[in-house]
Design a protein around this nucleic acid. Sequence first.
DNA 1: GTCTATATTAAGATAGAC
DNA 2: GTCTATCTTAATATAGAC
Lengths: 184, 184
Amino acid sequence: MRPTTIDDVPLIDALADVFCRYGYEGANLNRLSEASSLKRASLYHRFPGGKDEIVEAVIARAEERYQAIMAAAMEQGDPAERAGRVAAGLAEYYADGHGSCLIIALSLSDDEGRARGGDCVTGWAKGFARIARDAGMTRAKAKAVSLDAVAQIEGALVISATTGETACFERALARLPAQLTTLD
Amino acid sequence: MRPTTIDDVPLIDALADVFCRYGYEGANLNRLSEASSLKRASLYHRFPGGKDEIVEAVIARAEERYQAIMAAAMEQGDPAERAGRVAAGLAEYYADGHGSCLIIALSLSDDEGRARGGDCVTGWAKGFARIARDAGMTRAKAKAVSLDAVAQIEGALVISATTGETACFERALARLPAQLTTLD
DNA sequence: GTCTATATTAAGATAGAC
DNA sequence: GTCTATCTTAATATAGAC
């Protein structure tokens, strides 16, 4: 896509928000149009492949942001410090709990959506597990605590999306460093 | 609704599964028809109000099952025993993690769906908090651990729905008694 | 009570003016 | 690059036979 009057990044972010809030099936072109301040036909000009191409762009941007968070967090420091930076990155990504999770939103469609959501979850957990392994955990233990941590954060985002209560999300992130590094 | 060839309960359960898997918007009448083995027109005969009436029936049944689980669990025993029975009830409800969460599915629609999901989450957490209070926790602490426990279970259901991995869900339930009763 | 057939409305997608 | 207008397809909903 070439440069345009409204930049790609804010456009894709606005579109992503619709998918997060309404799910894949609920993100119809009227809602996408309204959220992006572009008419339906203009969206087709930017994304000739229609809704499919839009969702691919949204997923790609989310992946990109996730990779950036992990890369920045893993640069230096001990495992607990790295986990703390991951938590800080996720806090920003999810607007301190006011955002919703794209993985969940896209999982609620067909089997392909669920599979892609699963890949994201697995990738996310693998990043966490690397920290846990560095902290000295066995492979099995690292996998378990990582999945539990992902679940805690995902669940907290469900809580905040439905109730508006973000304290649960904040606790999940605050707990992350100890959770990934305590050997008990 | 009067008695019919296919009973209401298995019918509503089959319909509920579609909402859980595809979300509110993704649960179209073709999918509902296929899952229930009833043609679209027959669904309208059973639920004259259409999709809205179907989803109300699905929610009512879920509420009913949740209330039954809590009532049975709270009958007797100390807090940890009660929490154990809640966990057992939830394990059955969610088919040992192979089921999906209706709350999440219905939240991914409009603001009303989110609000209703929030009410369910809050009601669920309140049940947990009663156990935690009985175990001697302060009101604030009981609220926090209860919401955290709900988040852990909800998140685990996201993990299992997307990856097929149910161990996370099992751990969340196994942890529940200690989580709701440990005063630390 | 369930079905086939059909009407109605909304969603996805395209054509062509500016 | 964005728009209005339009087409096409799929969804919701109804009518009437069996």
